[in-house]
C-alpha cells in the first residue's frame, strides 16, 4: 500500500476544506439551526410526541443524516471532479497509486469533512433540544458508514459529470427528494399504507431509521436491515468504481 500517497491526497483535500472552514461550517450549521427553529420550535410545539420523543428531538437524526448525505456527495463529487476539470488529475493517474488508494484518499477526505460537519450539527442541536443518545458507538459507526457509502456515490458522480451543472443535477433531482421522502421529518408509520410500502424502496429510509434507532432505541425498520442496506449500497458503489478504474471510463482515453 502506498500510504504516503493516500495521506498526500487526504491532506491536500482537507487543506482545501480548512482554507474555507468558515463557509464550510457556517452554512450547514445555520441551515440546520433554521430547521430547528421552524420545525422543532414553531411547528413542533403543535405536534404531539412521536415514538415517545418530542418532535424537536425526533428530527435531529434526520437532519444530521440529511446534511451528512449532502456533504458526502458534494465533497467527494467535487473532490474528484475538480482535478479532472482543471487537468491536475494526470499526476494522480500517473503516480504509483492503485485505484483503491486513490479512492481511500479522496473518499476518506470527503467522509472526514462530512462526519465533522455532522458532529458539529449534533452539538448545535443540544442547544435547541433536550435529548440523550441511546447507543453512541453505533451512532458514530452508522454515521461513518452512511458517509462512506454516499461519498462513494459522490465519487462516481464526480467522475461521470462533464460539467458543474451535471455534478449538481443528480444530488438536486434524485438525492434531495429521496432524503426528504425518507422519513427525515416524520415516521413512515404516519403515512397511508401505499406510501409506507413505497417508502421501503427508498434507501435513505434505512439510513434515517437506523440512525434514529441509535438515538432513541426505536426505528421504522429493524436495525439489522438498515445496516445491511447501507452495506449493500456501499458494495454496489464499490463495484461501479472498480469497473470505472478497470475500463478507464472518463478517466483514461
Amino acid at each position: 500500500m502506498n500510504w504516503n500517497g493516500i495521506t498526500a491526497i487526504w491532506r491536500f483535500e482537507m487543506a482545501r476544506f480548512f482554507r474555507s472552514i468558515i463557509q464550510s461550517m457556517v452554512s450547514p450549521v445555520l441551515s440546520t439551526s433554521l430547521y430547528f427553529v421552524v420545525f422543532g420550535a414553531a411547528i413542533g410545539s403543535r405536534i404531539p410526541q412521536i415514538e415517545g420523543v418530542s418532535y424537536g428531538a425526533f428530527i435531529v437524526p434526520g437532519l444530521i443524516i440529511l446534511t451528512v448525505l449532502q456533504q458526502s456527495i458534494q465533497n467527494a463529487g467535487f473532490g474528484i471532479y475538480f482535478p479532472k476539470f482543471i487537468g491536475t488529475i494526470f499526476e494522480v493517474l500517473s503516480a504509483p497509486l492503485s485505484a483503491v488508494e486513490i479512492v481511500i484518499g479522496y473518499v476518506g477526505a470527503a467522509v472526514a469533512k462530512a462526519v465533522l460537519i455532522g458532529l458539529v450539527i449534533l452539538i448545535t442541536s443540544f442547544a435547541f433540544v433536550d435529548m440523550q443518545i441511546a447507543h453512541p458507538v453505533f451512532m458514530l459507526l452508522f454515521l461513518v458508514l452512511t458517509s462512506v457509502s454516499f461519498s462513494l456515490l459522490g465519487f462516481i458522480l464526480g467522475i461521470w459529470a462533464k460539467s458543474f451543472e451535471q455534478l449538481n443535477l443528480v444530488p438536486l433531482l434524485v438525492v434531495t427528494p429521496l432524503i426528504f421522502l425518507g422519513g427525515s421529518f416524520y415516521s413512515i408509520t404516519m403515512l397511508p399504507p401505499f406510501w409506507q410500502n413505497l417508502s421501503l424502496f427508498n434507501p435513505v429510509l434505512y439510513l434515517v431509521s437506523g440512525f434514529r434507532w441509535s438515538f432513541f432505541g426505536a426505528a421504522d425498520v429493524p436495525v439489522a436491515i438498515s445496516l445491511i442496506a447501507v452495506l449493500v449500497f456501499a458494495g454496489a458503489c464499490l463495484s461501479v468504481i472498480a469497473w470505472i478504474f478497470r475500463s478507464g471510463y472518463r478517466l483514461k482515453p
Partner: peptide
C-alpha cells in the same frame, strides 16, 4: 518516471510549496 505535461495543469489557489509537496507524497515518498 517524471512527467511535465504540455498543458499547464495547476490548481490556481494552491501554494507552490504545497503542490510540490503533494506530488512527492503521491509517489509514496516521505
Amino acid at each position: 518516471i517524471g512527467l511535465v505535461p504540455q498543458e499547464i495543469n495547476l490548481e490556481p489557489f494552491e501554494k507552490v510549496g504545497n503542490t510540490v509537496r503533494f506530488s512527492r507524497g503521491l509517489f509514496g515518498l516521505p
